[in-house]
Design a protein around this nucleic acid. Sequence first.
DNA 1: CTGTTAGCGCTTTCAG
DNA 2: CTGAAAGCGCTAACAG
Lengths: 334, 334
Amino acid sequence: MAVTMRHVAERAGVSVKTVSNVVTGYPHVRPQTRERVERAIAELGYQVNLSARSLRQGRTGIIGLALPELSLPYFAELADSVIRVAEQHGLVVLIEQTGADRARELEVLHSERRRLTDGLLFSPLALEPDETALLEVGYPLVLLGERIFDGPADHVTMANVEGARAATTHLVERGCRRIAVLGAHEGERMGSAVLRLEGYRAALADAGLPFDPALVGPAGAWHRSTGAEAMARLLDTGADVDGVFAMNDALALGALHTLHLRRVAVPQEIAVIGFDDVDDARYSQPPLSSVSPGREQIARTAVQLLVERIAGSVVAPRRVVADFEVAARESTAR
Amino acid sequence: MAVTMRHVAERAGVSVKTVSNVVTGYPHVRPQTRERVERAIAELGYQVNLSARSLRQGRTGIIGLALPELSLPYFAELADSVIRVAEQHGLVVLIEQTGADRARELEVLHSERRRLTDGLLFSPLALEPDETALLEVGYPLVLLGERIFDGPADHVTMANVEGARAATTHLVERGCRRIAVLGAHEGERMGSAVLRLEGYRAALADAGLPFDPALVGPAGAWHRSTGAEAMARLLDTGADVDGVFAMNDALALGALHTLHLRRVAVPQEIAVIGFDDVDDARYSQPPLSSVSPGREQIARTAVQLLVERIAGSVVAPRRVVADFEVAARESTAR
DNA sequence: CTGTTAGCGCTTTCAG
DNA sequence: CTGAAAGCGCTAACAG
């Protein structure tokens, strides 16, 4: 069957332990011995059995990444970044999709598969903020996103309030006075939607503009389709609008779609800005202005925190807020 | 430390083997015994150690998925589908990104990490078609995509020639007579670009239209940016064009971007069709017609083939071509 | 239907 | 600097 350390040891005329020492890079091996072992490894095409190593060490070198779905560009790009960063730490990434479903989010947290990963990066969407007790898991966990605060786990988040405030202010500075917001979650007390709405309201207040509930467009899921529908509903109410802050780019792109169908000129009649700065934003018609939330930084920080936890760090839960910036493009150029 | 089968066995007053039988669902266990074991498991919060199981069985329950990058929507959506299908087979997915880099593609094929996965779904972009020898690996392997033919591995591909032919014919039927193609790879002998160009030419021949090299727009990487550039170059040559077949949706969306900047009306002046039918296509301005290559079917088939190989199937390498259809939208509505 | 035994391939003591 | 022995937690094989 497969070639094991024993085979290598026999061929090199050393003990298994010495082979192990060579493979793991233990420094105190005589150069000559090391070379002999390495030759035997090459000749036999030996590769360590990672299952055996895992069983022995209690580590697998795998981290989990649980997110709503890869079809959403923001999460695809986040996963891309996480995989790259993890690789620099010698880790590989197992991706699990929750579909933003509460039961599946719980399943992911408590699954047997957690025994296969050294830790988990978890981007919850359905768990409620007061359910932090559910996050009392017995393994290294780092949260991504905004829904859970003051939980028992490390937490890397984007600057929701400040980003939304900057986006809205960006519209104000371009002369918008009747600014709608898309993506509100009614009745929610926490999460991105609440925070981004808060930033929107703060910017209006900064500018001395009134908050008009008629300009708030709810949208449960933040997809292009729901963005298109929310925009259509808003226009159907006959609301007077000259700017739109969409809580993410998918909503914004959906809104652009509706505006195009309705022959509303962007940015002349209505300026539009999104949030996330996904790659699509650069190539929509017109190119979409957006808040760039520091995806790279989030991935880098999250993996770093997780690696520290895996190494045994026991400091209190940390919270990191990533930097953001407004990427101004044609959809707000006026 | 962690709670093991022994602890459960002691608590339930049975042997480890019985616990194992319960955990693995072995049917011949007395209901009463089973119940006692299950209660002990629940009380202790026991979970099997998957590393130990893997070591024993020689299987990990993990499959690898190697693709260029998740940031490309087509691959993100493919990964989404693969993860869902794998889950139905009780498998989880480890994603590796090659960046379409030859060295990294080779690394992925021969990495130690392959000892951690039961098999690999591999979407090569850089390996050359005559390098099939490199695919003589000692583990279950299923190829996705088009670059390698007649290799030693199973292979699930989309209908490149027929899809491209149908897309081009779609433009012909809408009255286009000067149809450009974007995404050609000059000097390549195999791969999606070559095949889709072949389909394009076949459709022109079907319609009795001449093939004009001036209407072939090369683009190495199939990104939105390169599509935008290729379209711009084509317009700059002053070529008379009334239709564009882009070899994938990213190129097509980039082309739409350029056409918008140049104030060319789509579809009135130039109709555009892409390939892949990614989610974006539905929400571009105007919505993009595209060839839908059966992503779901590809994922389902690929995982199925891999599962059979993992189970020990030794039939000759199989090749499956997925069904496709043309999704007609506004970008070709005339 | 259930228990005992052995060993998957590795790393970790502990000696030398 | 290297070797011998033990054992990580599980399941396959074989008894009973």
